[in-house]
Amino acid sequence: MTPADLSSTVLHAVRRAVDEDALRAPVPARVRVERTRPGGSGDYACAVALQLAGPAGIPARGVAEILRERVAGAPGIGRVEITGPGFLNFTLDPTAGGAARSGRVREVLEKGPRYGWGTTCAGQVHQLHHRREVRAAVVAGAVAKLLRAQGALVRTSCEEAPDPDWARLGVTVDAHGRPPVPLGETRPVPAGATAGELLERLGADAARWGLLRPAGHDHAALGGELLVQGEGNPLFLVRYAHARARALVREGARLGVTGVYEQSADVPAPALHSALDDHPGVLAAAALHQAPDRLARHLETLADSFLDFQGVTPPLPAGDEKPSAAHRSRLALAEAAGTVLAGGLSLLGISAPDHL
């Protein structure tokens, strides 16, 4: 693990802590790590906890504990210690990273789109109640999927008879009417349009993304930008990344290259590996906080990191180049990224076409 890799890993930990509401502070643009000075502990040290303590309103050692929980066990890191007023000290484990990454890619390919599903909410029963409003209905449906993916039993209800057009947006309601006891309601900022109007202007996939991508307290942007076929449209970016991953797998099959991640041919793509590693935690947090927007943002991060990786490190041989272990590992990583993107889009009720 290089200093840049370690910096990226710590920054991911900060973002994850903020997304999970464990830490309330602005995410820095970058995190600086330095070689430990003579007599210090570990290989590298980082003072980000001291930087975040003031905005977070908690002691630096408390911030360091929050971050240590999210960094410990990351590929390539052997031990994380807290020293002094709140310095994080890292001892690297160069032998562990490749094995961890190989195991993760293998797990993704074995579990398929269900990679990241867990038991965080096992045994829980949730009754989701919402108004007769399209955004509330779509958000409640997505939350129900996320909770079920974490093992919960879920029932949805609406205060009035559902809009018939909701079915075309993939929304189902188990019951309607005022419940006999008060229930917590799903109350995002209303869309300002009906399901029929959104379907006519945007279609089901773009409408669902536009309704789910913003946090519930923010207004949903539901304009023509959702239909733009360009990298400025996050929905297009996510679906394009998935389609690109599937195209690489198809072309690999044509060339006789099968994706198998080999520890001896570890792929240097820290951002992509981190995004895959974060996915189970993101799904659990999105379910616990009933916030599908967290999953949408994570898919954008994953898509960005995948497209960067495949642009810099081509997964397939070119010209007269012979297939190697490096190509097999890269192709397996590409297939894993596409698999996670498809699974995430499915939980949001959005299709993941193989061709765009």
Rank of each mutant, 00 (worst) to 15 (best):
Cys121Tyr: 02
Pro113His: 11
Leu109Asp: 15
Gly86Asn: 14
Leu128Phe: 01
Ala122Arg: 15
Leu109Glu: 13
Gly97Gln: 00
Val71His: 03
Ala122Trp: 10
Pro85Tyr: 12
Ala72Arg: 13
Gln127Ala: 12
Pro94Thr: 10
Ala122Gly: 08
Thr120Pro: 00
Thr83Ile: 10
Arg70Phe: 06
Gly97Pro: 05
Arg70Tyr: 10
Val105Ile: 14
Thr120Tyr: 12
Gly103Asn: 11
Gly98Thr: 08
Thr119Glu: 12
Val108Asp: 14
Gln127His: 13
Gln124Glu: 15
Glu81Met: 07
Lys111Gly: 04
Leu92Tyr: 05
Val71Pro: 08
Pro85Ile: 11
Trp117Phe: 15
Gly97Trp: 04
His126Asp: 09
Ala99Phe: 00
Gly103Glu: 12
Gly76Pro: 06
Arg101Asn: 14
His129Phe: 14
Glu107Asp: 15
Asp93Cys: 07
Pro85Met: 12
Val108Glu: 13
Val105Arg: 01
Arg101Tyr: 01
Thr119Lys: 06
Leu88Cys: 04
Glu107Leu: 13
Arg70Ala: 08
Thr119Leu: 10
Val71Ile: 14
Ala74Arg: 06
Pro94Phe: 02
Trp117Thr: 02
Leu109Pro: 12
Ala100Met: 10
Pro113Cys: 07
Gly116His: 12
Lys111Met: 14
Arg104Ser: 05
Thr83His: 05
Glu107Ile: 06
Arg106Glu: 11
Ser102Tyr: 00
Pro94Cys: 01
Arg79Lys: 13
Tyr115Phe: 15
Gly73Ile: 03
Ile82Cys: 01
Asn89Gln: 08
Lys111Gln: 15
Leu92Met: 14
Gly97Ser: 05
Pro113Leu: 12
Ser102Ala: 15
Thr120Val: 12
Tyr115Met: 09
Asn89Ile: 09
Gln124Pro: 04
Trp117Gln: 10
